[in-house]
Design a protein around this nucleic acid. Structure first.
Lengths: 108, 108
DNA sequence: GCCTTTCATCGTATATCTACGATTAACGAT
DNA sequence: ATCGTTAATCGTAGATATACGATGAAAGGC
């Protein structure tokens, strides 16, 4: 084995892993939907185009403040966006980011 | 608008959100790739078919124990599986689960 | 003006993640 | 049997997520 034995069983591509910004991007988007409540919220919005925060709250077995936090996480990820409408807030999906997520996962 | 104003802007589908097992499933799989290191590991395995744990460690700027934890998370999710090969362990992707992930995201 | 509705934010408690070094377990080679 | 290699697990520390009630801010109705 002189040197090191040539790693049988694994090819020998000179392991190189660029920092890879897309890994970060995918991880962030995946994180946004890494909770059942957020998946349900996202689906709800996809199915209805727009939806008030209050309605979302009444669909989930969670406190209003908790739902608001999940909405914030989804909003921070870019997957959804909220538009103020009087005292209410209408949320809707950001299709561009959703498409980006699908693309990043699809390219895996 | 007499009563309540019919929720202009929002349709009126009688909010009903089944527990939805697929939301849980998607959330779990998304969680598995919700960390840049795990995305990189997954990509590395996809690109090489199989890969020893040691090699993965040397590709990442993380301690061996940390990588092992990430591998465990990926393994628990089903996305990858490890096969013991002497003192080494060769990891590879579980295509069925990866496909499932792609499907769940694609169906969003 | 005042009050109600709607939603975000604050403060808090608990749980889980992330990372590391150290230790343990499994296997082959000598 | 002993040693070296490989990888999982343990133990720990710090950060972050999750959930809730309570409070705060913004807008419209009385």
């Amino acid at each position: 084995m002189a040197k090191k034995a040539v790693k049988k069983g694994c090819d020998s591509a000179p392991v190189k892993l660029m920092p890879d910004a897309t890994a970060d991007k995918l991880a962030k988007l995946a994180w946004a939907i890494a909770h059942p409540a957020r998946v349900q919220i996202l689906r709800l919005l996809i199915g209805r185009n727009v939806c008030m925060c209050g309605e979302i709250v009444s669909c989930l077995p969670l406190a209003q403040s908790t739902v608001s936090q999940h909405l914030k996480i989804l909003k921070d990820s870019g997957l959804i966006q909220g538009e103020v409408d009087g005292p209410k807030v209408c949320y809707c999906v950001n299709d561009a980011i959703l498409t980006k997520l699908k693309q990043l996962v699809g390219e895996l």
